[in-house]
Amino acid sequence: MFDLVKWCLVISYYYGRFTGVLNFEIDFKTGRARVTKKATICSAFAHLIMLILMGVQMANVRIMARLWNKANSLHSNMFWVMSCVRMTGVFLSLVNRWSQRRTFISLYNSIYSLYQHDPKIIQYCRRSIVSKCFCATIYETLQIIIVLVLTSKQLTISLAFSIWFIMSLTSIINVIITQYFTAIALIRGRYRLLNKELRSILGETQSLMPNKSGVFVTKCCYLADELENISRAQSSLQALTERLSKAYRLQVICMSITYYLNLVGNVYLLFSINKYTSITENWPNIVKVIGLVFLVFYYLDCWLNSLNVFYLIDAHGNMAKLLSYRTHFQPGLDERLETVFENFNLNLARNPFKLSFYGLFEINRSSSFAVGNSILTHSIVLIQYDLQHF
């Protein structure tokens, strides 16, 4: 049977190997990650090529200006700022990959163990993983098509190297974000499965008729054992999420800044295309259509990235909400079962679930709303500056 999720993950793995982001190898027979000489050499070679291209790009900073020959100085400055931030972010992310290679191998093995323990978690994140891979592939492909069509008549070797470098940066960013997305999705799938089990335990507990019979005590002990297993699994999941956040914090910050600038730049670009019609007067109509489709998929991809994290936070919140229903139980339950419920609830209260990076920001709906307002504000500032000076 064709497994779309499996193929998405396999393609993502080989794409990561090709770009050098994955500097270790996965044994498909055992599913375990390991350091090999082949993986190290391939990744180091890919990064060496990337550094050479980066040097070529920095040494020929005016080459890409050909694409902006009808733009004003604000467009050019914005383009170069975004390019420099992209290069810096990717460079720091790749350095982080090498300095924490053992950490990422350990993380992969821990996340694979989640799937190995209960493959049903894929059912709860299948749509998210497939949608993410589809959107990322489509908008990256469309970006390549647009650039190739626009530069087909003025393509030179230097310009081709610059384009290849920019496309490589996009690929590396996509690989990093997709890996983080997949890890969060699998953790969320495990959370949802635990919530399903917890809901079942709550239903059985609520149907109990308190008495001192042996059947009642045995049932309470069984439910207490099951609840303790869920509590331990939740604690391990939260610890794994914290490890994941710690390992990816530098990369997430770099990618977040890149996405932020891209979103602001896209808003300003749409305004500029409407104001400066000379920029697009020689563009084929097919490029304009593809450009609009590209923006749709790009924003959809950003939305999926955000929803993936929000759904994980919601899954943890649902667990805490389910535990609050214990107040509806009939009095007289087994003391051990009551104690397990109380300890589970206290553990969740003492260890709130947060995704924080270097203490700079916490990912949640409130912060995303603030970021959205900031993107809108900075886009308006750019537009106002353009109206006043050009």
Results as ranks from 00 to 15, higher is better:
residue 1 M to R: 04
residue 19 T to R: 04
residue 21 V to T: 10
residue 23 N to H: 10
residue 24 F to R: 06
residue 24 F to V: 02
residue 25 E to S: 10
residue 26 I to P: 06
residue 29 K to W: 14
residue 31 G to L: 04
residue 31 G to T: 00
residue 31 G to W: 05
residue 42 C to P: 00
residue 45 F to R: 14
residue 50 M to I: 03
residue 51 L to Y: 07
residue 70 K to Y: 14
residue 70 K to P: 02
residue 75 H to L: 07
residue 76 S to V: 14
residue 79 F to P: 00
residue 80 W to R: 14
residue 91 F to G: 06
residue 92 L to E: 10
residue 98 W to A: 10
residue 100 Q to Y: 12
residue 101 R to P: 04
residue 108 Y to Q: 01
residue 111 I to A: 01
residue 121 I to P: 04
residue 124 Y to P: 01
residue 124 Y to M: 06
residue 129 I to Q: 00
residue 133 C to A: 15
residue 138 I to F: 02
residue 156 T to K: 09
residue 156 T to Y: 06
residue 173 I to M: 10
residue 179 Q to R: 15
residue 185 A to R: 01
residue 190 R to Y: 09
residue 194 L to C: 05
residue 203 G to H: 08
residue 208 L to N: 09
residue 212 K to E: 13
residue 215 V to M: 09
residue 217 V to G: 04
residue 220 C to P: 08
residue 222 Y to I: 00
residue 223 L to A: 05
residue 224 A to I: 09
residue 227 L to C: 08
residue 232 R to G: 02
residue 234 Q to R: 09
residue 248 Y to S: 02
residue 250 L to T: 13
residue 253 I to A: 12
residue 256 S to I: 08
residue 263 L to G: 08
residue 268 Y to R: 03
residue 268 Y to S: 07
residue 268 Y to I: 15
residue 277 T to F: 07
residue 282 N to H: 09
residue 284 P to N: 06
residue 298 Y to V: 05
residue 304 L to M: 04
residue 307 L to T: 09
residue 308 N to M: 11
residue 309 V to I: 14
residue 316 H to A: 07
residue 325 Y to C: 01
residue 336 R to P: 01
residue 338 E to L: 13
residue 356 S to E: 15
residue 357 F to L: 12
residue 362 E to M: 11
residue 364 N to K: 13
residue 369 F to V: 14
residue 370 A to M: 05
residue 373 N to F: 13
residue 375 I to V: 15
residue 384 Q to K: 13
residue 386 D to C: 00
residue 386 D to E: 08
residue 390 F to M: 10
